[in-house]
């Protein structure tokens, strides 16, 4: 397994790592950077638990070859509470009871973040669409959708 130097922005900081460029971004994040907040639910892009932002767009990190992030910017769930604070999206998730087992939660939060970056005032339909690639078995999505709506309000009123 040949390794290559991969340089990219990770949660706002420049990083460099020697890694197999054909292994997944998900494994790179979890194994090389110990960023275990990004979860592996299927490894096939079918559940969204591994959602991270790549240049501000939600992507399945399990489907991204590590080499692809060279020169780009990756953001994981850990970026949202970097300085010990909590993001309004996370606050809203807790407030609305949107977290049950929590395994889909980091991916959901990242999909919500991608949505609100692009569309600060989404309607319920747009919210459903934005998380349609994130499976959740516990919640039936209702409290998650309510949380994202609440988060939009929180961010906009700031």
């Amino acid at each position: 397994m040949e390794k290559e130097l991969i340089k990219f922005m990770l949660n706002g900081e420049p990083v460099e790592v020697y890694n197999d460029p054909a292994s997944s971004l998900l494994h790179l994040l979890r194994e090389k950077f110990s960023l275990t907040g990004t979860k592996e639910g299927c490894g096939e892009g079918e559940c969204g638990a591994c959602t991270v932002l790549l240049d501000d767009l939600a992507v399945n990190s399990c489907l991204i070859p590590a080499g692809k992030v060279n020169g780009r910017s990756v953001e994981t769930i850990e970026a949202l509470s970097k300085d010990g604070g909590v993001d309004p999206i996370q606050e809203a998730f807790v407030e609305k009871g949107a977290v049950q087992c929590g395994f889909c939660t980091p991916g959901m939060v990242m999909s919500a973040r991608a949505l609100l970056k692009q569309n600060p005032d989404p309607d319920p339909e747009e919210i459903k669409m934005a998380i349609s690639g994130n499976l959740c078995r516990c919640t039936g999505y209702k409290q998650i959708e309510a949380a994202i709506l609440l988060a939009a309000g929180k961010i906009n009123s700031k």
Partner: peptide
């Protein structure tokens, strides 16, 4: 196609 994540990439 697929999901928002897949459509993004």
């Amino acid at each position: 196609v697929g999901s928002p994540q897949v459509r993004n990439i």
